[in-house]
Design a protein around this nucleic acid. Sequence first.
DNA 1: TGTGGGTTAGTGAGTATTAACTATCTTTGC
DNA 2: GCAAAGATAGTTAATACTCACTAACCCACA
Lengths: 190, 190
Amino acid sequence: MQTERQVQIIEESIELIANKGIQGFTIKNLSKVIGFSEPAIYRHFNSKTEILLTILENFKEMGEMMTVLVVNNNDTTIKKIEFMFSKMLEVFTEQPAYISVIFSEEIFKNEEILKNKIVEILNIHQENIEKIVEIGQSNNEVRTDIDKSSLALIFMGALRLLVKRWELNNQNFNLKKEGGKLINSFSLMI
Amino acid sequence: MQTERQVQIIEESIELIANKGIQGFTIKNLSKVIGFSEPAIYRHFNSKTEILLTILENFKEMGEMMTVLVVNNNDTTIKKIEFMFSKMLEVFTEQPAYISVIFSEEIFKNEEILKNKIVEILNIHQENIEKIVEIGQSNNEVRTDIDKSSLALIFMGALRLLVKRWELNNQNFNLKKEGGKLINSFSLMI
DNA sequence: TGTGGGTTAGTGAGTATTAACTATCTTTGC
DNA sequence: GCAAAGATAGTTAATACTCACTAACCCACA
């Protein structure tokens, strides 16, 4: 359970990361935007890593809630994937901070605990898409000449690169629209 | 033109990044592995950024050389893509440092000049694959119901994610072999 | 041929800045 | 009146980079 202050710190952290990136996410900067001193932050979190871990955990939970809505319903495969992707693109559009955090594998390389959380999230997403594809394949809705793990890799990879490109281009195109195009390509492909 | 010492510094830098990641690539660490003092390094490069820029430039040139060999030959589309991908996977396998550098967009976000170089490399690869796909489409060798930019995004994205996963899993699977599987899926897909 | 001026590439000892984090004191709300 | 939550003022360690200095070499010219 998180206290009110903890929630506030998490929210301000996300905001800060959205504006200044992971690099700009320092305790000093955080204390500036949050309006109280650096040590005060340490009253609520033991370390900076703990704050980041909480953010990652939030993202993970979001993904899990979303998955529950999708995997076991009766939509077509492509509708399921479309739903998952559009939800994720929505999150990234509305809270671009998550891009910085989720895609910062390199930065967290030295921090085993953060790296592991990232890998965990990556694997969960892969597994979820594989599950969806598997059901589609058993329904003859999805081609079976390409195995589920390759298809999941292709879907995830394309989505990630699209998001990355959007970020690198200073968000100067409509992410959801381009995501829609991609989904359309997928539907032709499977 | 690079002096012998500059080449040495670049090579040691790549080695260092391979071992300790971008985070571990400090001038102090570099001076330690290279065997002479920090200021000496500054005799040969004006800044750390200049060293990284040179590494990126090297990678870019490698890619350009590779592309010349591919784009305008008479192989099938899938053979061309296979060649490009296997060459890239070879580079990543033999010099994993390039993974750290090429995929460190987030780290370089604050350093406009490095970020731009990364974007440049990303765009060149996208364009090259688009060219290959375009030729294939005009030969009726590649499906035309999915446009070249989507196909290129899908190819690149899957490759990147595969490499990223390999890195995050401490290189504990055979990258070239998995890359081969992916190419196989592509050949069925197009 | 030898020497003096110039260059190259190195050194050890620093700089300023920034990072995460903390010991200690003070305020505030119940 | 006390405990939680703040502030002040630090610490330590790391960073990229600079300073003053020098050993060793090159080479024109007396």
